[in-house]
Design a protein around this nucleic acid. Sequence first.
RNA 1: GGCCCCGUGGUGUAGCGGACUAACAUGCCACCCUGUCACGGUGGAGAUCAGGGGUUCAAAUCCCCUCGGGGUCGCCA
Length: 598
Amino acid sequence: MLKTHSCGELRKEHVGKKVTLAGWVDRRRDHGGLIFIDLRDREGIVQVAFNPEVSEASHKVADRMRSEYVVRVSGEVARRPRGTENPKLPTGEVEIIAQEAEILNPSKTPPFYVNEDVEVEENLRLKYRYLDLRRPRMRESMMLRHQVVKFIRDFLDANGFIEIETPILIKSTPEGARDYLVPSRLHPGKFYALPQSPQQLKQLLMVAGMEKYYQIARCFRDEDTRADRQPEFTQLDLEMSFVEEEDILCLMEELFVSLVAAVKPQMRVLTPFPRLSYAEVLDRYGTDKPDLRFGMEIKDLSDIVAKSSFSIFAEAVASGGKVKGICAPGCADYTRRQLEELNELARSCGAGGLVTISLGDSAGGGLDGLSMEKVRSAAAKFLTTDEVKEMARRLEAKMGDLLLVVAGEAKVVNLALGELRQEMGARLKLAEPNTLAFAYIKNFPLFRWDEEAGRWDSEHHPFTKPWDEDIPLIDTDPGKVRSKHYDMVCNGYEIGGGSLRIHTAELQRKVFRLLGYRDEEIEERFGHMLEAFEYGAPPHGGIALGIDRIVMLLAGRETIREVIAFPKTQSALDLTFNAPSPVSEAQLAELHIELREE
RNA sequence: GGCCCCGUGGUGUAGCGGACUAACAUGCCACCCUGUCACGGUGGAGAUCAGGGGUUCAAAUCCCCUCGGGGUCGCCA
């Protein structure tokens, strides 16, 4: 090794030791006589003092050093003179008195600060990702990610799981997300596809008797990106045989509780993880991935205003819709402009509009003193004091609060209020950043009617097991069939999902038929699964968790790009390599591909 | 594909019709400086204001188009 110690590890116990360090120049302070270099490596920073009276030669070398030069320094670890210790550095009690120094490689002036944590345009960071990754924030992200994956592997190993790799070149299945395709050289006109997830493979591993499988699996989906979505991403994929739903949910709960305690002990995990039904979360939070770090629940007000002379409310109820609301605490003094923004948000969700009801000013106080003079609302003249009081009471409001009420079709009302709840939660900073509020969402419908295609579609995927008692409904009322699927959510993100799977060919075939596949299609696309299920497939189930999103939440970052070493842009470009790129005519010819004019 | 936001020295920002010959901070270069640690001091270089077109006596500033980036809806079984 070119070094005997790492910069970050040196403490006063090392005083007197002769050490050799190698790393990058984080900062240089030239005092004319004395030169100080903050030397940085992966583990941290230590100050090196170049004194011409100690070593004329190395002082000369230090004179040429600049930011991000790669240098090697030998010298003695010394206690810093009294009064010059730096409490901001873990190594701040000591410094290296340089005796020898060499520049291993100079550096151009970096295009952005490596030694300061300032915002830099993201495409510049991505182009020079190798410099960006030197910055402390990114280094911490990468280390955290490593610790998370390491912990998961150790945990699952201790619980009897074995890690098995599955192919990256596999078969295209037109259902689900758009596939990334790989042309075959040996089979003209045929293509492999990159896996969207190892779903079928892990089920076959259960048929194979592996009983407990997991994989840190790369998955590929050719769909548009988001802050929490990339074309390729990493899942913790796992599957178990002979399990019931709670076996998996409890195991994952144990995993996360111990994981957070190990890698982020300063974060609080709310336990036990609540199990909520899909219908319930839509009703109470307006989304299937609620942020449960704060309340502000959506309440049904339909019965209160069914007979109201405010026709928008009364008519919504009369035509089978709902009137629901949330309470924004302390927002009674919101300006017209602020209220209009919220109205706009509600409309963008498809709502006809938003009715806001300000309860007095921000003076606070109980509802007893509420009179219509203190109510500010476009609907004020149509509402009675009792109606407003009742609504306020149900929403657990007090004077000074703002009621946000939406009327219309239940689905739209929930969606709009869900968005408003999220928005108000963010504005009022109701979500504690160091808290992780996990929950399981269960009892999804198995099928959803696809208007466009005019047929039933799987809510998740066709291998999900229905409730036993609902199986007859597949023939009579598919929309009522409940599934054995569960999602794991945390702080408003869906971080994973799984299910118990169908393990008999008979039931699997029945589901495929409902989804509109002809028998020969079923054979062509899923024959391998159906046949496998005829050779003693055990009951099984599993879950897949988004590693990128989990690390993002643990790192407190806004996008998964912050926890991926080389992420892609929104338009799926890799700016470090400039991928995708054209290929030569020869390469195309070998793959039997001819480009067509667009 | 729709909608929204952003693009000004290397970096991050200010300027939002005339006082802009474009400001500030930092970085960079030179010189000075032996206890700094975001060292300090003096001086200097560095910007066709993303690109194109238009309105105007006058455009970084207003309008249109294009490009690039981000957010989001659709999409993500």
